[in-house]
């Protein structure tokens, strides 16, 4: 067995990521409209920006996929002219790393809804960390900051945890995921 990601893994990860990159791009204006209200309702849909990492990992189930997917999606949003420019890339790297760490902590052995949600939460925490520098969020009134925390994390669980998992489950039923799932030892043993 070759170590690392094969070309098929990489290309499939990147196409999934770019699809979400397009969605990320479209998500920007939507987020903008909701955000002008100022009450952090927009944070509930912020979780969409973590979904590429989770979905790609749940499909391909290999180390490195989550990080690659999130960077690729951010890169996609960036080259499609996303409103946040280079900031997207920095957030992408941070969020991807955070999600990857969660999957690594469970040794890439778990693919359930809980792990997806945890990865979403980790990505949310990472994004909040970057926002301290980027958005001066430390200078928000405390109650407001707490709402931001709460809603962003809730949104992460909802979208990049639960929804991502349901989406991949639906995709599994179509059989297409078998293309990229690695063969097991049993499969090799069956050859005799």
């Amino acid at each position: 067995m070759e170590k690392g990601l094969k070309l098929t893994d990489i290309l499939v990860t990147i196409i999934i990521a770019l699809i979400f990159g397009v969605i990320y791009k479209l998500w920007g204006p939507l987020y903008g409209v909701v955000a002008t209200l100022g009450l952090h309702l927009e944070q509930l849909i912020y979780g969409m920006w973590f979904i590429a990492a989770v979905v790609a990992y749940l499909i391909i189930r290999k180390p490195g996929v989550a990080l690659l997917a999130e960077i690729a999606a951010a890169q996609g949003e960036f080259i499609f002219g996303g409103e946040w420019g280079v900031a997207t890339l920095i957030f992408g790297i941070g969020q991807g790393l955070a999600a990857e760490l969660i999957f690594a902590a469970f040794r890439y052995k778990r693919y359930d809804m809980l792990i997806a949600s945890l990865a979403g939460v980790a990505a949310a925490v990472a994004s909040i960390g970057i926002d301290f520098y980027y958005g001066y969020i430390g200078d928000l009134a405390l109650w407001n900051l707490l709402i931001l925390f709460g809603t962003r994390i809730a949104g992460a669980i909802l979208i990049s945890g639960i929804f991502a998992h349901l989406l991949v489950q639906a995709l599994e039923k179509t059989g297409v995921t078998n293309l990229v799932r690695p063969a097991t030892k049993e499969d090799y043993q069956a050859l005799g």
Binding site: N178, R181, P182, A183, D187, A190, L191, G192
Partner: peptide, 11 residues
């Protein structure tokens, strides 16, 4: 030559 698709019972 023997070949088996992952997850499929038979060769």
């Amino acid at each position: 030559m023997r070949l088996k698709f992952p997850g499929v019972e038979s060769l």
